[in-house]
């Protein structure tokens, strides 16, 4: 609410994060970097490389979960409902409202 941090700025930051998360994780699991973890080391009795990859995966899922709630359409508020026209024959197409 404060004039210093308008809401659209926060939304923009979340969108940036939504791009950064998969991009960064892709970088982390691609060859030059991922090979740092290909070592003969066991973590909790499991191979390091496997634990590392599953770790990134886990981070991705958690990150996506957190981001999925914050992302909003720029300007238009909540994403509009898709039309119900496909429901079946008895349904009234949603465009009916256009006549008003």
């Amino acid at each position: 609410m404060s004039p210093r941090r308008p809401p659209h700025q926060a939304a923009g930051r979340r969108r940036d994060a939504a791009f950064l998360l998969p991009a960064l994780c892709a970088l982390l699991m691609l060859p030059p970097f991922v090979n740092l973890f290909v070592r003969e080391v066991l973590v909790w009795g499991m191979p390091l490389d496997m634990v590392y990859l599953f770790g990134i995966w886990f981070v991705l899922v958690i990150g996506a979960f957190l981001l999925s709630r914050g992302l909003a359409e720029p300007g238009t508020g909540p994403p509009r409902r898709s039309d119900e026209a496909g429901r079946g024959c008895a349904e009234t197409p949603s465009r009916g409202g256009d006549d008003a």
Binding site: R15, A18, F19, L21, P22, A23, C25, A26, M29, L53, W57, L60, V61, G63, A64, L67, L71
Partner: peptide, 12 residues
């Protein structure tokens, strides 16, 4: 992992 990346980047 490929599909995971695509879905995490769903917004785009």
């Amino acid at each position: 992992m490929g599909p995971t990346l695509v879905f995490v980047g769903w917004w785009f």
